[in-house]
């Protein structure tokens, strides 16, 4: 069965890029353009992995990560953010993220990180 991945990013360009890579690798993809839609989407779609941006309008990514953890302690989240700060990476990982990539992401790096995060689910 194909894994389902929820992309959460307020940039349509960023969502398009990630969707293109993931779909071409055979994954099912759903999208959310902000944190609240992401939480609803996680509840409804039950994705295997969430690809999450950090700096977004409304709820920021770290708050979304915290809420997702509260909803499902087993949630797998890969953070993909333009924020290159080590401290942001540490905050995301200590908040439960399975991985952290900085934008712009390359195809191979994204697919490797996604596979690794999904492996951890099994």
């Amino acid at each position: 069965m194909k894994a389902k991945i929820l992309i959460v990013d307020d940039s349509a360009m960023a969502r398009r890029g990630v969707r293109h890579v993931l779909e071409s690798a055979g994954y099912d993809v759903v999208e959310a353009e902000d944190g609240l839609i992401a939480l609803e989407g996680y509840f409804l779609d039950k994705p295997d992995l969430v690809v999450l941006d950090l700096v977004m309008k409304g709820m920021n990514g770290l708050d979304v990560l915290k809420k997702l953890q509260e909803m499902d302690a087993g949630v797998r989240v890969l953070v993909v953010s333009a924020d290159v700060q080590d401290s942001s990476r540490e905050l995301a990982v200590s908040g439960g993220a399975s991985g952290f990539l900085t934008k712009p992401v390359d195809r191979a790096g994204l697919l490797t990180a996604v596979a690794k995060a999904l492996e951890a689910t099994a």
Partner: peptide, 28 residues
């Protein structure tokens, strides 16, 4: 252009944050 700006400005300021060991928060 907005997303390109987001990536470039974060790359630049985030690198400063890393080197100077200060945490910087960004608006959208």
């Amino acid at each position: 252009i907005t997303e390109v700006g987001n990536i470039l400005l974060n790359a630049c300021l985030g690198t400063f944050g890393n080197l100077l060991k200060v945490q910087v928060s960004f608006s959208v």
